[in-house]
Design a protein around this nucleic acid. Structure first.
Length: 419
RNA sequence: GUGGCCAUAGCUCAAUAGGCAGAGCAUCUGGUUGUGGCCCAGAAGGUUGCGGGUUCAAGCCCCACUGGCCACCCCA
């Protein structure tokens, strides 16, 4: 038996109402903020991600689906949206557009990881980027997209985890302070954390190692080491958040795993998806476009995991609206009636009325059962006598009332009643 | 990549101490002519995830693989 590859899943019709509900709201909210949709290829040159996401990150070092195509090109399945969108910004000269350029995307992301609740090898992300403007009001705008969206979907108790990772000017001093602090307690760290201390000391902050916990509270906070520009950027952003009553907690342990972040970083956490609680994460990346060969251009964005959003909505008991269903079932009795029924179904669809056929020459009883299960409002019965009179018997399922209606009037008759 | 738990019908789960693989739901059919929901009856549905091993005998014990869940790593 074949099974879906590890960490992938089929999105079945039963789950579709959630997907439709969530993705339609994403399009709607994007429109409210003047975001324009962009799609980039599902694979890119491997080098783009190595350069954009950064060597030494987990994504690049061990999570990319990379291969050589038949022409020998090094290709990687999209492990995140940002690098590809930046590539498109540069390639299409979007710096000549009015800034900031506000973009959103939706689609699958691939990472070779060990699956667990809320984490898959293929998942889908809603992604937002605002490029070309350093104003903290843009940070607020980006966070507001996530805020508005989650609020409209029915989330309760939303709260941002917020931090600033500084910039190339102030980060070295902070990094140095961290190293000095933890070096004093090196004998109390285990091997994993000792390795972090050498390679990426910021990582120590979200260590879950037992031994490190007592040390973390007194560790230096990045916000205390920010340069004047970064400090004022954060203060201004917080002022905006307060003014809009958007709750946020400074989480000095929030450090993101992608190299390109500067200044603002944030996450939104939600319940009901296990240990992988981040439903949305993002931040500012003011060096990235330049790093990828474009003009110096600031940017900020976030990714939101659609599977996690849905899992969390389910946990909160949010019910999506039902999908549009067919309104009538055509139920022919006998071979002659069947030909008329097929034609009737076609005419109804041409008139914009959703119609399903009862197949297989089943008994009327069986056909009404299936009409009941399909949830149609009317069963349109065509038997010998109806056929002879050029009529159809329209049975309203909910009331069991039925009336003969001339075939050439049925579309109009239904349209009046289904409105 | 590391560790723990797990895998029986489409779904949720049973199966004594190793001794003939079952139920509910869902599906299909019927309960007298062309009338659904409730009820009743019946049918269909399984190489017990896959492959080996132990045994007279394996769903049950052992090994490997695949997949799932949980935690780590990390992230959405």
């Amino acid at each position: 038996m074949y099974q879906a590859p590890r960490g992938t899943q089929d999105i079945l019709p039963a789950d579709r109402p959630y997907w439709r509900y969530v993705t339609e709201e994403m399009h709607r909210v994007a429109a409210l903020f003047g975001l324009q949709q962009i799609d980039t290829p599902i694979f890119e040159e491997t080098g783009l991600y190595v350069r954009g996401v950064g060597e030494g990150t987990d994504i690049v070092d061990k999570e990319m689906y990379s291969f050589q195509d038949k022409g020998g090109a090094d290709i990687t399945l999209r492990p995140e949206w940002t690098a590809g969108v930046m590539r498109a910004y540069i390639e299409h000269g979007m710096h000549v557009l009015p800034q900031p350029v506000k973009l959103y995307s939706m689609g699958p992301i691939f990472r070779y990881e060990r699956p667990q609740a809320g984490r898959f090898r293929q998942h889908h992300q809603f992604n937002v980027e605002m490029l070309g403007e350093l104003d903290p009001a843009v940070d607020l705008e980006v966070m507001s997209v996530a805020w508005t969206l989650l609020g409209r979907l029915g989330y309760r108790g939303l709260n941002f985890q917020l931090n600033s990772t500084g910039c190339p000017k102030c980060r070295p001093a902070y990094r140095q302070a961290l190293v000095e602090y933890f070096a004093r307690y090196e004998d109390r760290l285990n091997d994993t954390d000792r390795r972090r201390l050498k390679i990426n000391p910021l990582r120590l902050l979200d260590s879950k190692e037992e031994a490190a916990q007592p040390l973390l509270n007194d560790a230096p906070h990045s916000v205390d080491y920010l340069c004047a520009e970064c400090a004022s950027h954060l203060a201004t952003l917080r002022g905006y958040l307060d003014a809009l009553d958007m709750p946020h907690s400074i989480n000095f342990r929030l450090v993101r795993g992608l190299d390109y972040y500067t200044k603002t970083v944030f996450e939104v956490w939600a319940e009901g998806i296990g240990a992988q609680a981040a439903v949305c994460g993002g931040g500012r990346y003011d060096r990235l476009i330049e790093e990828l060969g474009g003009p110096p251009t600031p940017g900020i964005g976030f990714g939101m995991g659609i599977e996690r959003v849905i899992a969390s909505l389910k946990a909160q008991g949010v019910q999506p609206p039902p999908l549009p269903a067919p309104r009538v079932q055509v139920s022919p009795l006998g071979e002659a009636a069947r030909a008329a029924g097929i034609k009737l179904a076609r005419d109804l669809r041409d008139a914009g009325i959703g119609a399903v056929m009862a197949f297989g020459g089943r008994s009327l009883k069986s056909q009404l059962k299936s009409a009941d299960k399909a949830g149609v409002r009317y069963a349109l019965i065509i038997g010998e006598s109806e056929l002879a009179e050029g009529k159809v018997l329209a049975r309203e399922m909910a009331t069991s009332e039925q009336a003969p209606v001339p075939l050439d009037e049925i579309a109009a008759w239904l349209r009046g009643r289904l409105a």
